[in-house]
């Protein structure tokens, strides 16, 4: 675990000092702000609806930012030739995956914290509970963690960052669209598909300030599964 933290710290420092990290954060904040202004404040709504609208917008930028932050994690190590350094150090592949994941999650948490001025505005000028804000952010972080794990798998599979992004997007889009497939399907398949969709049914309760344990477990299980898959990809590469 300590070596995973070591990797996470180095990775975080590299991301913070890179133009890419700053661009992702600035871009996401800009989009969040514009979305909040146009869809949250431009018409008369209840405070709770404005907050829901905010979390809906943030969930979209979080998924995109998660993929962008994750694409470089392992693919860049391969491009630089530094993967050999990690592979030949006395640590397990799961330490590498965990360290990389934690660094991107910390970046995403930083981005999330920087959006807090918007719910604060609603809180000060309207009527929303702190619980709604907290649960909404828990949902955003769980969704972000799952997206990063998905992007990390893409990064573990790809040789370049661009390919990592493409693979991550190819994995994410079907998971999002499962919701549409669920609407077009008959029972009981529709319920299964809706449960598996990464955003719609699973994220909506968080948006509304309702903490449902099974939804949270879905995101945690998905994240754990994807991290395990990334670890297995790294292990399998040693046989090549």
């Amino acid at each position: 675990m300590s070596r995973a933290l070591l990797i996470a710290r180095r990775e975080l420092a590299a991301t913070l000092s890179s133009r890419l990290g700053a661009t992702i954060i600035a871009g996401a904040l800009l989009v969040d702000g514009l979305y909040f202004y146009w869809f949250g404040l431009s018409e008369r709504k209840l405070s709770a609806e404005v907050l829901q609208s905010f979390f809906y917008g943030v969930s979209g930028t979080t998924m995109i930012a998660g993929l962008l932050l994750a694409m470089r994690l392992i693919a860049e190590e391969r491009q630089l030739g530094t993967m050999t350094l990690l592979n030949t150090a006395p640590l397990r592949d799961r330490d590498i995956v965990l360290g990389k994941f934690l660094s991107a999650l910390t970046m995403l948490a930083l981005l999330t914290v920087l959006t807090a001025y918007m719910p604060a505005l609603i809180f000060v000028n309207g009527k929303v509970s702190v619980g709604h804000i907290v649960v909404g952010y828990v949902g955003v972080l769980l969704l972000g963690a799952a997206t990063i794990a998905l992007g990390l798998l893409g990064s573990a599979l790809a040789r370049s960052q661009v390919m990592a992004l493409v693979i991550g997007a190819l994995l994410l889009v079907p998971l999002v669209l499962l919701w549409g497939l669920a609407r077009a399907s008959d029972p009981p398949l529709n319920a299964v598909l809706a449960r598996l969709a990464i955003h719609h049914d699973n994220f909506r309760p968080f948006m509304q300030g309702i903490l449902e344990l099974d939804r949270a477990l879905y995101y945690l299980a998905l994240t754990a599964f994807l991290l395990l898959a990334s670890t297995k990809v790294l292990e399998a590469r040693r046989w090549r």
Partner: peptide, 9 residues
């Protein structure tokens, strides 16, 4: 390795 594994930053 044949290419030194360095982090340029």
């Amino acid at each position: 390795p044949d290419t030194p594994p360095l982090y340029p930053e």
